[in-house]
Design a binder for these strands. Structure first.
Length: 269
DNA sequence: ATGCAGGGTTCGC
DNA sequence: GCGAACCCTGCA
């Protein structure tokens, strides 16, 4: 499969904080060291070539036509979106494996991107199986994580989240089926039974696995941007979800990614 | 050098 | 509902 660089910004989408399961190899390719969905991307000037993905590649990266019609709708919402959408290209929302997003984003709470990435990579390298072709270690599944010790995980730099990961893995394995038919708010509420998963991480899981699109995760940056750009601020997290849905409907998840990319880089907020 | 924030959540009151 | 603690690193 081939993606156009213009309609898919690999650097932003894969390394901007939606996923922690990508890394550059020494020959410059991008490796998805996911245990569920491994594969390799080669970046050319104007296209991205996907190799050896075991699953449905198209589903993971999102459909180009859906993306373009979302952009058309977002452009018409207000002047801010009109400007932002025309300035930013190729920012999308990934549809990652549900289980893997859970067990990488638990590590993200009160943490920073380089450290999260480092922890995720260490967990893969120590406890993941090797990819048959590339020899890289792939991120372990919930089954494996549930069997690790706190010390083994702490050695990967996750700190107090080690306990969250192990306990959540056990609870997830027992309740796997209960998540299957849930989406949007119902899904984020259900996800909060997992220790280490609060409002924000639940939103990340739902949105970055493609199972919610009517809101976008609210972190410190998002709060800052929404306050300064749209002049909105709430004390209850769920009020942000309502605001997103009211403003952007089913394009809210994409709107969030595009807005944050724009205002974080250009610091025009 | 000390303090604080970093893509928050849990626990205790 | 509210504040504090949490593991650890980088940066002011």
């Amino acid at each position: 499969m081939i993606l156009s660089s213009k309609s898919f910004n690999a650097w932003v989408n894969l390394f901007g904080g939606q996923s922690f399961l990508w890394r550059q190899t020494n020959n410059g390719e991008l490796l998805h060291f996911s245990g569920k969905f491994p594969g390799v991307l080669k970046l050319r000037e104007d296209e991205i070539i996907c190799y050896d993905f075991s699953g449905n590649v198209k589903d993971y990266f999102g459909d180009e036509d859906d993306y373009l019609s979302s952009l058309r709708r977002l452009r018409m919402i207000d002047d801010i979106m009109a400007r932002v959408v025309s300035d930013i290209q190729g920012v999308r929302v990934l549809k990652q494996d549900f289980e893997e997003v859970i067990f990488t984003f638990i590590i993200s709470s009160n943490n920073n991107l380089p450290r999260i990435r480092n922890s995720v990579l260490q967990i893969a390298n120590r406890f993941g199986r090797k990819h048959t072709k590339y020899g890289a270690c792939l991120y372990p599944d919930a089954e494996v994580i549930s069997g690790l010790s706190i010390d083994e995980l702490r050695a990967c730099g996750v700190g107090y989240r080690a306990d969250f990961l192990i306990e959540s893995a056990k609870i997830y394995l027992r309740n796997k089926n209960s998540f299957e038919n849930l989406q949007e708010e119902a899904l984020v509420e259900a996800l909060k039974i997992l220790p280490g998963v609060g409002d924000k991480v639940a939103d990340c899981i739902a949105v970055f696995s493609g199972r919610a699109n009517s809101f976008s995760p609210i972190d410190v940056w998002a709060k800052r941007i929404l306050r300064e750009v749209y002049n909105v601020e709430f004390s209850h997290y769920s009020d942000y979800r309502k605001w997103w849905r009211g403003k952007f409907g089913n394009d809210a998840a994409l709107a969030g990614q595009i807005l944050f990319e724009y205002f974080r880089n250009t610091s025009k907020a």
